[in-house]
Design a protein around this nucleic acid. Structure first.
Lengths: 192, 192
DNA sequence: CGCGGGTTTGATGATGCTCAAGCCCGGTGG
DNA sequence: CCACCGGGCTTGAGCATCATCAAACCCGCG
């Protein structure tokens, strides 16, 4: 059950986890199950937990002032879920996070964050992740600004083929910031 | 000369800098002057230095395959400059960074990064900055995808009024991902 | 005085959004 | 076993927003 998490940590760190550290992790991360459509986080609530997906799929989105959902992130196995801002700063969130498939998670309360970060391998992993995330969001921004709808979609296909299988295409469209009809038309008369 | 840097560090950290730490910082950060249009970084080179702006203004941009510049970042006093990816991972950069005004910087070689990060206040500051950056780029992405040209510009006005003074508007347009003509038209028949 | 960077203005057209309708298909209940 | 329902996907028509191209303008400076 905890193996995926341990693996993930060692993947992004040069240090390895001692047995006592593994025990610590087991004591602060707890399993949690979400049924489809169940919320992990709702708007205006503080994101007190961060999650690691063992099996399943979640979406993070916000709802604009006319009630339309804007998908911020689609996440599957071995991804983290949380509203970073809300989680770290204990501020109310602007986002919803819910399960798109029935999902098995490990979750950790914000109160245990410091203890978790005391583990050197974890600290290093977080650091690496920050870097990676930053670079990734820079790229995503660049794509969003400079690519055509077709470009965005092809890009997405290349980068996240798994996600295409797991989410309906109107959600992908929302994630990419294009209309679902446009995405539909892109797929039709098409190459590849 | 080093006071701005010290101030910046204490601003983002709960810890404070000892005298010996300040001495260390002075030994690894060196002053550097750039004349207008002089490069801090060029495409395909590794970004071996990171900089902190004491006075002046820089732009970071990439050049697309038809030769058009896309501004990634505009930076003035008390901002950091570097291509993070290139700097941390020692990989060739896709970006140019050059001085838009004559600029006074402090710079640090990548080889001194570890020593720099050994200072607790610095480590903490970096951590905080990572968080802030991440949240900011999330917001920027959201804006880029969902706002109209007018919305983007108003937003920019609110968030970075100083930058409007310092850079010509076609650069701001590029930063915002809109055509310079569009920006010009936005300003004319104008509110606010 | 003339040059050059920056800005403005106008005309045109592409891209992609909106709205509206119909379709496809899998699941449910009669 | 079939009819219906609903979510998702497709298709079409019209339209808004912006990018593009081209020309003129403005102004500080050598």
């Amino acid at each position: 059950m905890y193996e995926s998490l341990f693996n993930y940590i060692s993947l992004y760190s040069t240090e390895s986890l001692s047995e006592t550290e593994k025990e610590l992790i087991k004591s602060i991360w707890e399993p949690k199950r979400l049924k489809k459509h169940q919320f992990f986080l709702e708007e205006n609530k503080v994101c007190t937990y961060t999650g690691f997906i063992l099996k399943g799929a979640l979406r993070q989105y916000r709802v604009d002032n006319v009630g339309v959902e804007h998908i911020i992130q689609l996440a599957i196995e071995n991804w983290w879920v949380a509203d970073r801002d809300s989680f770290f700063n204990r501020t109310p969130s602007k986002y919803y996070i819910d399960a798109w498939e029935t999902t098995q998670l490990l979750i950790m309360h914000r109160d245990n964050l410091d203890a978790f970060l005391k583990i050197p391998a974890v600290k290093e992993m977080f650091w690496e992740m920050n870097q990676k995330n930053h670079i990734a969001s820079q790229k995503r921004l660049d794509d969003a600004m400079n690519l055509s709808a077709a470009g965005k979609y092809h890009n997405f296909q290349d980068q996240y083929p798994e996600l295409i299988q797991r989410f309906p295409q109107h959600q992908i469209a929302s994630y990419l910031g294009i209309a679902k009809e446009t995405l539909s038309r892109l797929r039709r008369p098409s190459a590849k």
